[in-house]
């Protein structure tokens, strides 16, 4: 049993990584007071950009294209999400509608660009030698139990996710920047009265959510696939939102929730050959999400003003 768990851990962490990073993006956005349903679309943009840039660079003989792939993914997704920021901060848009619009746009745009660039409904594949392979961290991997579970044989992306959790936690709870940003998600009128520029803080929150979810999407495609297709993201952006909710809008909670959802997805890989039908196991991550949200509901711990249109004249 213990053996099986330690065997499952690297896969679970691989699947948890994009969820955690994207949910951290959602954390910034919601804490600043803007609900970002477009996380899914941002992941698609990030995943597409990463795969496309990597393929294009490596076919032109450029080495180390993966760094540019990741950087471009983050930039593209940040640019993309600025539509949502503009709509929800300056245009009083219903944030769910504008987010949904961006999701439709992302799925159309990525496939459209694939058709333009690659003449098919997906990107070409890149070779596995172009992307990072699994590594263990020296010293840390020798810690009993924890070392074996968390620091052995993982993609570098996973370690990035761990580091990001710490950085996000520090930025949000230990700096004045974090305090200002969070205040805009709780009671923006009060923040404004203290001289905080609510629109600016919300822009920062939404742009960070775009950057991080673009990174999450890039990591998702680079670690689990060899190309970007219309099914690469398959609603994981929404699972990331669920991760955020289950993690109680807190970076450490997001880490735990992400790993749990990673495990739920891993289970479906482990049932082939057993009596449980594969379709049933494919449902597990989604059903777990629903169950977990039901179990953790009731206590409202989310940002109070999240999703509300900021009206300076309201009290």
């Amino acid at each position: 049993m213990l053996n099986m768990i330690s065997e499952m851990f690297p896969i679970a962490l691989m699947l948890a990584t994009p969820l955690i990073i994207t949910a951290l993006g959602g954390f910034f956005s919601e804490r600043s007071g803007v609900v970002n349903v477009a996380l899914d679309g941002c992941m698609q943009i990030g995943g597409f950009t990463a795969a496309a840039v990597l393929v294009l660079l490596s076919t032109s003989g450029f080495k180390g294209g993966i760094w540019w792939a990741i950087i471009c993914a983050v930039l593209a997704s940040t640019l993309f999400v600025s539509i949502h920021a503009f709509a929800s901060i300056h245009m009083r848009a219903d944030q769910t509608i504008s987010g949904t619009a961006l999701n439709v746009l992302a799925s159309g745009l990525t496939i459209y660009l694939c058709e333009i660039i690659f003449n098919q409904e997906r990107t070409n594949s890149y070779s596995m030698s172009e992307v990072f392979s699994r590594v263990s961290i020296p010293v840390l991997k020798d810690i009993p139990v924890i070392g074996k579970l968390f620091f052995t044989n993982n993609y570098p992306y996973t370690y990035v996710a761990f580091i990001l959790v710490v950085i996000v936690w520090f930025a949000a709870y230990k700096t004045s920047f974090g305090l200002r940003l969070r205040s805009c998600g709780e009671f923006p009128q009060a923040s404004a009265s203290m001289g905080v520029n609510v629109a600016k803080e919300r822009w920062i929150g939404v742009l960070l959510s775009g950057a991080l979810s673009g990174l999450g999407g890039a990591f998702l495609v680079l670690s689990t696939d060899t190309q970007f297709t219309g099914a690469s993201v398959h609603g994981l952006g929404f699972v990331a939102i669920a991760t955020l909710i289950f993690g109680k809008w807190n970076p450490w909670g997001i880490l735990g929730a992400g790993i749990l959802f990673g495990f739920a997805q891993t289970l479906s890989y482990y049932v082939s050959g057993t009596a449980i039908p594969q379709e049933v196991m494919s449902m597990v991550p989604y059903l777990t999400t629903i169950l977990v949200i039901i179990l953790t509901s009731g206590k409202q711990v989310g940002p109070k003003a999240s999703g509300e249109i900021y009206d300076p004249s309201k009290r």
Binding site: A87, A93, D94, L105, G108
Partner: peptide, 14 residues
């Protein structure tokens, strides 16, 4: 056609 639809949706949102 997806792109047309998305553009219309965004414009209605704003």
């Amino acid at each position: 056609t997806n792109l047309i639809q998305a553009c219309i949706l965004i414009l209605i949102a704003i």
